[in-house]
Amino acid sequence: MNAPAYNFAYLDEQTKRMIRRAILKAIAVPGYQVPFASREMPMPYGWGTGGVQVTAAILGRDDVLKVIDQGSDDTTNAISIRKFFAKTAGVATTTSTADATVIQTRHRIPEASLHAGQVLVYQVPIPEPLRFLEPRETETRRMHALGEYGLMHVKLYEDIARFGHIATSYAYPVKVNARYVMDPSPTPKFDNPKMDNCAALQLFGAGREKRIYAIPPYTSVVSLDFEDHPFNRYRHDAPCALCGANDSYLDEIVTDDKGSRMFVCSDTDFCETRQAQGHRGSESAAPHEEMVHG
């Protein structure tokens, strides 16, 4: 299956080495954004070029790859990246969180807890958490270097002043290893606690911005907050309509143009696994029943 025109996993070995050096440095300094010479990839920026380069650099022939986009294994983006590596590296792919050794993700962390030896690769659009408040890169780098993070709380302050609570619901800033403030990529803040003390290695790649950062296994990751407005992980107050799960992150699916909707797990593997185990939700038997009262 390996197309002869490409090196293993598309990138040439020199490039992989360069990226691995950046990754090693990132692991050594948890949460610190390491610049790297991001390459042009055969897909547009915004389609996960940073994550793809990190995955390409760490993938071995024995690895089992899973790719998710918003928790789902079967969206265009997930499928095309999975196929990309199946074709260029010939590695085995899977949709099972437990079976994968490398999981590339956009916007979610799987519900099933990760285990030692796994690597979670995040696709990152904007790595700099201070960017929207301080546009000068020279200044934000200095702030990171000196640990001046008052500005990050300004963002949270603005939320509370405007909405009465911290309304930031994704890309919620965290402090890694009690040192660097980091943008966890646009994952929902529901997933933030999963990053803390996680058994798997977490790598973050931003292709357009040319930055790689990392959270080594078992590192403390704390979501920023105020004493009187503590961090809370938001979740729609409903069980999954398909598997009945009460503790998973839910997607809201609009089912018609009259306001009907249903909530289902965003992690498709998690949901399907539960359904296979016999768990049922309100919609799983007769998915169209809601139309009656809709």
Partner: peptide, 27 residues
């Protein structure tokens, strides 16, 4: 000043920068 950030946060920023972590007191 930070022209796009509220007046309250403009004043509060220096407090947050020296470690104030209580929204109510900052405000």
């Amino acid at each position: 000043l930070r022209m796009a950030v509220s007046a309250g946060a403009n004043v509060g920023e220096r407090l947050m920068a020296v470690g104030w972590n209580h929204y109510g007191r900052i405000r």
